[in-house]
Structures are given as structure tokens and as C-alpha cells.
């Protein structure tokens, strides 16, 4: 296990590479999903308001 983490002495370069890859891909995916859901909710709210105002008229 220690040997695996050590990566033949290159652990200090290999692990940050993988960690950063996971971090950046994770941030891109998460931010995209979050703003997608936000846009979805906004459209739903606007459509609901449109329907309500239409009924009142």
C-alpha cells in the first residue's frame, strides 16, 4: 500500500495530477448540472406565472 502510494518515488507528481484531473472534471460537471437545474426551475416558475396571469385576465 505504502509502495503503491509512493509510486516509485514519483508520488508527489502522479497523485496531484490525478487529484487535479478529478477536481477539474468534477467542477465542470457539477457547475454545468447546477446551472442546468437552475435554468430549468426558472423556466418552470415563469411558465407557471404566465399560466396564472392568463387565468386572471
Amino acid at each position: 500500500m505504502i509502495e503503491f502510494l509512493n509510486m516509485g518515488g514519483y508520488g508527489a507528481y502522479v497523485w496531484p495530477s490525478y487529484a487535479l484531473t478529478a477536481l477539474i472534471l468534477g467542477v465542470v460537471a457539477y457547475e454545468s448540472w447546477r446551472s442546468y437545474r437552475a435554468a430549468q426551475n426558472q423556466v418552470r416558475a415563469l411558465e407557471k406565472r404566465q399560466a396564472d396571469e392568463g387565468r386572471r385576465r
Binding site: 509510486m7 516509485g8 518515488g9 514519483y10 508520488g11 507528481y13 502522479v14 495530477s17 490525478y18 484531473t21
Partner: peptide
């Protein structure tokens, strides 16, 4: 390159 070559797979 030893184990450092593993960086290739993400780079």
C-alpha cells in the same frame, strides 16, 4: 520513466 509515466493517462 518508471511510475511517473502514469501521468500520461490523464495528460
Amino acid at each position: 520513466q518508471g511510475e511517473s509515466v502514469r501521468i500520461m493517462y490523464v495528460h
